[in-house]
Amino acid sequence: MKFCIFLICFFLVACQSTVQNDSTVKKEYSTEEIYQIFEKNIERYRAKLYQEPESLRIWVEMVRYRFEPHYEVTQEMLGHHVKIKIILNDKGYIEYTEIISSSGNGALNQAADKALKLAQPFVVSGLSAKDKKVAKNIVLTFAPEKEST
């Protein structure tokens, strides 16, 4: 009988301590805090993924990701486009750029060229030989749809 009472007391104490531990560990996050945590995790993921892309699709995402912070779009650039051929060396630095076609907006041409040069290097070392050949001699099209904010 004493053993049964001991077991009941033990389980009651264990249940109470478990509930208390759960309530002290649990933390409520605001929507803003969740958003910030989410953004930090995405940035870490991108940094790791883009450090040495293993596919051409990921490489193109990396180029866009690195390019966008340097690309300033103005109202006069909207509705225009420019195609720029870039040639990269083995380390991903631009050796040569050439405007292949343009809708004639000089500001867009200069902004795209400047942003490309500021965003380099575009690492190609993780790509397959076939993808590396494409990435090192590629034509990129820039056609802004909205102004930079």
Rank of each mutant, 00 (worst) to 15 (best):
F38W: 13
H80V: 05
H81K: 02
A119R: 06
E28I: 14
Y50I: 05
C15D: 04
L108I: 11
L88P: 00
G126E: 05
Y45W: 10
E43D: 15
Q36H: 15
I8S: 05
E39D: 15
A112K: 01
E28P: 01
H81Y: 06
V139E: 10
G79K: 14
I87F: 00
I99N: 01
A115N: 05
R57A: 09
G106E: 09
Y50S: 02
V25Y: 12
Q20G: 03
A135N: 06
G104D: 09
I58C: 13
Q110K: 15
P121N: 13
G104M: 07
E43L: 11
T141R: 03
K27M: 07
Q36A: 14
L56C: 04
N89F: 00
Q75P: 05
N21R: 15
V25I: 13
R46H: 06
E54M: 04
V19Q: 02
I42L: 11
I37W: 15
L88K: 00
S17Q: 11
S101K: 08
F11P: 10
P121F: 00
A112V: 08
F11E: 04
Q20C: 01
K114G: 04
K133N: 15
T18R: 05
S102K: 04
E76Q: 06
K40S: 15
E61F: 12
G79M: 13
E76I: 00
L108N: 08
Y71C: 09
Q16S: 12
S128G: 02
R57Y: 02
S103A: 14
I100T: 04
I99L: 13
V19R: 14
Y45L: 11
E43A: 14
I86K: 00
D22A: 12
I86E: 00
K130G: 12
E52D: 03
I87W: 01
D131L: 11
Y50K: 04
D113L: 11
T74H: 05
E72Q: 08
E39L: 11
A115C: 05
H80M: 07
A112I: 03
G126S: 07
F38Q: 11
C15E: 08
